[in-house]
Design a protein around this nucleic acid. Structure first.
Lengths: 315, 315
DNA sequence: CTGAAAGCGCTAACAA
DNA sequence: TTGTTAGCGCTTTCAG
């Protein structure tokens, strides 16, 4: 029976029909677990995400899942809420379920993570994060360069007082690197870093709002532009400015990062850095699949390109 | 060994230690598939979503997944992109994997769906959709009433020319019922329905923009408010109005539906109907778990409450 | 209390 | 070409 089900060659049509009839009659369904048990391979991939509610992440997962589905693979979803304990539990779970591979799209890679991830006995791909001691391949955007580019562009446009709202630097890419791009761009043109112009937020719009308030309060002199490390932050900052009756971009301009779908529909529409998370999702799926097939693809890091999109919030 | 692993009673500490040592030494991991095979029950739930990129859906899934994780269950994600073929494939896949249950959060329930869903041999819960012939329980918001309430409120505020941008009516809840609420509220106060004031969009902001443009072009007389069947639509419409230099809400007000996170951060902030998708997610998880345990919970339909949130876009 | 054996549903290998 | 059997890794049952 197994033979006709799996379309093996050399089966007489007579048997084929007989089996197919019984299958229909008995309403037979394969038990994929039993199948996996004997074949020692499952057809699922585990995905660890910090927050699927976050547009860049959900876009990535959507693309990733779609490509996986084309290859008849399913996805086991682990939403961690940034809780390291949960993330480790998911890894264990995925391993115990014999997933073909794991995608890690968390927000932070601690020393603990490094150990856990390096110990992972199944193919692993880290997305949008990295760490020197991490052995698995990573797929990233060049967040440092992109952020540096933004600030240089702002400078060229005559903005010399640039407020920046950073993500937590525990997030190496969205946090540390974007902030470093900001700092270095200023340094490279000889502008002194001013403490009050850099404030911290997390990944919510609300925290962006609050951080913008702090910039407004603490700055010795008002910035001419506020640049948020994510669009969510920028949206919060934009709201804050409008609530306080600043004109955007005339009084203070706004710049974001990620180009989430709503960015182009805001009033004023939000200038941002476009990162193609769909593209990254498709690619990551292909890459992880290849890793699972060939046990290692000789790739250490893949860097995707970005582009800057100027809209009304910052001309 | 199985005994010590699963904390069965009556095991001498000596054996316990011996086994635990070996486990550590050999870096042993359970094989959950083998375990599931013999126990005939898995610890996963299948989730079918049309588009995890859509905030209400991702919020629901996040809450749902979080509650599931508390109960040590994993989630298999099926993102269908609204493709009925994929949805059916996911159902088969979940069944073959012996998932404990399935959540269906698609956008449409066709006759075909009804058959497929009614045939499903494992517990099934349908979210935000319904169909007369569907046998499984459903969990919904009262979209008709909510929409009716919005329009009555608009009427009370003096808006007699209300433009409405509908979702496709194939989506019974977000489409048909919200539109019906609009139509009936008008009818109940004796206002004639005007064809050009009702336009259709899908679930994107872009389509909301375009639909708003059509209202503006085709209306014999401009509406004083445009009410979008989703926040995404309303955001697109808002953008359209602003692009055409209408003042919102002074010239034309805007009303949305869903109260997605960004609604409160727009300028002007968006009036909307608040639906607690997190709450719904938690509840659905509990309910599905109960269904899986007791094979049926004697519940046919659960209706969650909604509330109207007035913000700047419509005072 | 513990070791050994049966069997979950499947596929691969081996006979027939 | 086809029927049969071993065995995947686990839990449960049955002896011991």
């Amino acid at each position: 029976m197994s033979r006709v089900l799996n379309r093996k060659p050399n089966i007489s049509p007579e048997v084929q029909k007989r089996v197919n009839d019984s299958i229909k009659k008995l309403d037979y369904r394969v038990n994929l677990r039993a199948k996996g048990l004997v074949q020692k391979s499952s057809d699922i991939i585990g995905v660890i995400a910090s927050d699927i509610t976050n547009p860049p992440i959900s876009q990535f997962i959507e693309a990733f899942a779609s490509r996986l589905h084309e290859n008849s693979l399913g996805i086991l979803l682990g939403n961690s809420g940034n809780d390291i304990r949960k993330e480790f539990e998911f890894i264990d779970l995925f391993v115990e379920r014999k997933a073909r591979g794991i995608i890690y799209t968390g927000k932070e890679i601690t020393e603990e993570h490094v150990h856990k991830l390096n110990d992972c006995p199944i193919p692993l791909l880290v997305v949008s994060q990295e760490h020197e001691q991490l052995k698995c391949p990573v797929v990233v955007f060049d967040n440092y360069q992109a952020s540096y580019d933004v600030v240089r562009l702002l400078l060229e446009k005559g903005h010399s007082r640039i407020g920046f709202i950073s993500c937590p630097i525990e997030d190496k890419h969205a946090g540390l690197l974007r902030q470093r791009g900001y700092r270095n761009a200023l340094k490279d043109v000889g502008i002194a870093f001013e403490e009050p112009l850099l404030q911290y937020a997390d990944f919510t719009m609300e925290s962006g709002y609050l951080a913008a308030e702090r910039i407004l309060e603490q700055a010795k002199e008002l910035p001419t532009v506020i640049y948020g490390a994510t669009d969510q932050i920028a949206i919060g900052a934009l709201k804050c400015l409008r609530d306080k009756s600043f004109r955007v971009p005339d009084d203070i301009a706004i710049f974001g990062f990620d180009n989430i779908p709503v960015a182009s529909k805001l009033v004023p529409s939000l200038s941002s850095v476009n990162l193609d998370h769909y593209e990254m999702g498709y690619f990551s799926a292909d890459m992880l699949l290849k890793m699972a097939e060939t046990s290692g693809v000789g790739i250490k890091k893949v860097i995707f390109s970005h582009s800057i999109i100027l809209r009304e919030s910052c001309r």
